[in-house]
Each structure stands twice: as structure tokens, then as C-alpha cells.
Write a protein that binds this DNA or RNA. Structure first.
Lengths: 189, 189
DNA sequence: TTTAACCTTGAACACTTGTTCAAGGTGGAC
DNA sequence: GTCCACCTTGAACAAGTGTTCAAGGTTAAA
């Protein structure tokens, strides 16, 4: 019996992998480093994750779920506020951290290099786009669904730019103006 | 004496490294693979590039120079056309290739993981921003230099978004609309 | 207490990696 | 030719890699 923190070793291993990926990139994620970071023995990593690539796949899914929650519908508030909240979340302090952004970047890079990761990523991206388009449709019922998807796609371009540029260290003011630009696109007309 | 192609082995080695980086990511760039791709012996890679990290640094500089040329001033055409051309170049077919975009992405990821690469990248980014601000200043002399830099920063956010989103496979129409958005920002007022 | 399913360990394996280096090749100056 | 600086090779080494596995620990039900 261990202290409370000690319990779910599988989760700790995944967490360790995410931390290493965000700090040192894919070359920094090796089974021994993951084990060390998680405070478990080498063998245990392979016990919970058959492969190194299983481990990375799990990390990918974890991030993708997190992304999807950004555009989750929240029945408690009116549609236009839901949309505005979703748009502002991407520039919020909990998301605009180096840890998260760096993780996203490394996972994108991974997806470029390995086809199976690319498929997971593309599917998650599609679902994000759908979620955003739905929010727009709810907030502006007069738009056709094609128009909604069009706006969602335009917004995603700016959002991706915001994420990337935040990593490169551009001033916050420029991020804020870009955020306003996404709202402008969403609520136009 | 060899055929013409055979001559500059150092350049071929750098080219090989860039090709591997863009196709397989940093894990795919190892000295043996670079040698094979370049058609030279293993030892020669270490002869021209002391280190693996020297090789990658060279690749970084190579891409950064290419980026900087995008906003190079061209005295032959009027200022507003220079600006428009520069903005359109980033969505041009020679730049919006998977090869180039993938390379950029992997280099950004690298810069996240290693501080020395990050410094090179940040410096190049700064110069790109300066170049773009200068073009804007030439095209719209009524703007203060701070206003120019502000617009340049906003444009870069959208451009980064275009690059990234192009990699993820979003439709061309959305890229074109984003391009129009950069021109709108540049020439506003 | 015995049993059985699960969890956890680290040594061991085969393989890949970056780097070094002695050996030899090449081309032009003298 | 002789020299010399330069280029080119691949074997060899030490360190690091993913993966396997026999051994033992832990838990809770019977």
C-alpha cells in the first residue's frame, strides 16, 4: 500500500511521456527516461504499453481529447456565449502555456513523420472543425452548414497561427488582436 | 574526376539531411542515413560537419535564409506591389509544398527542444518580422514604425496559421481567404 | 493459509547510434 | 616524377536504444 499519489502507475507513465515530449521532443522520449520520470521500473512501461509507439499513440489521443473539449457544447449557456467562450478558451492562460503548445507542436511534427499518427491527428482535427462549425451554426442559425464550416476553417487558420506564434514569443497584444479577429469571423454579418 | 552532379559533396550532404528531416523528422536524421541518402561514406559526413548538431544547425540556417528572401526588398517594383508580392509568395506553389512546410514544422519542434536552436530560430523570426514591417512602411509611409510592426505581427500570425493548416490538409479555399486577410491587414486604412 | 491473478522489478539481449581514426585516394604545384 | 594538402573510405568503439523475460511481490477471495 502506497501513498495516494502512488496509485495509478499507468497514468503516471503517460504523464511522464507527455512531459518529456513537451520538454525534449520525441528524441527525449525513450523508455528508460519515461520510467525514470514516472518513478517506476523500466519493465513496467512495456507492461502497460506494449510498444513505444503504443505509448505515443496514447499521448496523441490524450491531447486530441483535450482539444475536442475546447469546442464541447455547454447546454447551460446561450449559443452565442458558448461560441464566444470556446473562441476565447484557445487564448486562455490554461491553454496558452509553453507545456501545452510545445506538446501540440511535437505531436504535429510526429504526425508528419509517421502515417499512422497522421491519421489519428487528421481525424481529431476533423472533429474539432465539426465541433466549431456546430457552435457557429447554433449561434447564427441563419447560416447554411457550408457557411459555418467555411467560417470554422477560417477561424482554425488564425487559431493555429496564434498557437504557433505564441510559442515563438510574439507579444501578447498581437495574440489578443488575433483573438478578436476570430470573433469577428465567427459573428460577421 | 566525376560527373558534374558529383562535385559538391558537402552541399549534397546538407540536402540529404534536409530531405530526411522533412520526410522522417529528427529521428530519421542519423549520420548513416544522411550518408546513404547523399551517396557518400559515413566518415565524410563527420568530415564536413563536425557534429550532428552542426549539421542540424546548418539546416536551420539554410531554411531561415530561404524564409528571409520572402520579404526581401525588390527595388525594381513600386512599394505596394513589393508588399503584395511578398504576401502572396507565402501561399505560392513553390512554398506551400509538403516538403517545405514539413521542414519548417520539424525545425520549430527542434527549436522547442534545444535552446541553441531556439536562439537561431528566434533571431531569424525577428529578421523576418523586420523585413515585413519595412515593406509595409514603404508601401504605406503614413504609418508610424510601431504601427508597421504591429501589422507585421498580425500578418505573421495568419501566415503561420496558413502554413500549419496547409500541412493538416485544410482546403485551398480557406488558405486563399486567409491570404486575402493578410492583404487586408497590410493595406488597411 | 493456500491459491491465482495481477503488478513490479532490473538484468540481459540484439541492435542502432554518434564519433574516431588509420588507411588510402586525388589533384595540382614544384 | 615528388611532394603536399586535401578528400574519402569503412571498420571499430563506446554509449544508448527498444524489447524480453524469469523472478519475485502484492492483493483479495476461498
Amino acid at each position: 500500500m502506497n501513498s495516494g499519489e502512488q496509485v495509478d502507475r499507468q497514468a503516471r507513465i503517460l504523464e511522464a511521456a507527455l512531459g518529456l515530449l513537451s520538454r525534449h521532443g520525441i528524441s527525449g522520449v525513450n523508455m528508460r527516461a519515461v520510467a525514470r520520470e514516472a518513478g517506476v521500473a523500466l519493465g513496467l512501461v512495456n507492461y502497460y504499453y506494449e510498444d513505444k509507439s503504443s505509448l505515443i499513440r496514447a499521448a496523441l489521443h490524450r491531447i486530441d481529447e483535450q482539444d475536442l473539449m475546447l469546442v464541447a457544447a455547454d447546454p447551460a449557456s446561450p449559443p452565442d456565449e458558448q461560441l464566444r467562450t470556446a473562441l476565447r478558451r484557445v487564448a486562455g492562460p490554461e491553454l496558452l502555456t509553453t507545456q501545452y503548445l510545445s506538446l501540440r507542436l511535437h505531436l504535429w511534427a510526429l504526425a508528419q513523420a509517421h502515417e499512422d499518427f497522421a491519421l489519428i491527428n487528421a481525424a481529431a482535427f476533423e472533429r474539432y472543425l465539426d465541433g466549431l462549425a456546430t457552435l457557429i451554426g447554433n449561434a447564427k442559425p441563419e447560416l447554411t452548414s457550408d457557411e459555418c464550416r467555411e467560417r470554422a476553417a477560417d477561424i482554425v487558420v488564425v487559431q493555429n497561427g496564434m498557437w504557433l506564434t505564441a510559442l515563438l514569443g510574439v507579444d501578447e497584444a498581437s495574440i489578443r488582436r488575433s483573438l478578436a479577429r476570430t470573433e469577428q469571423i465567427a459573428f460577421a454579418g
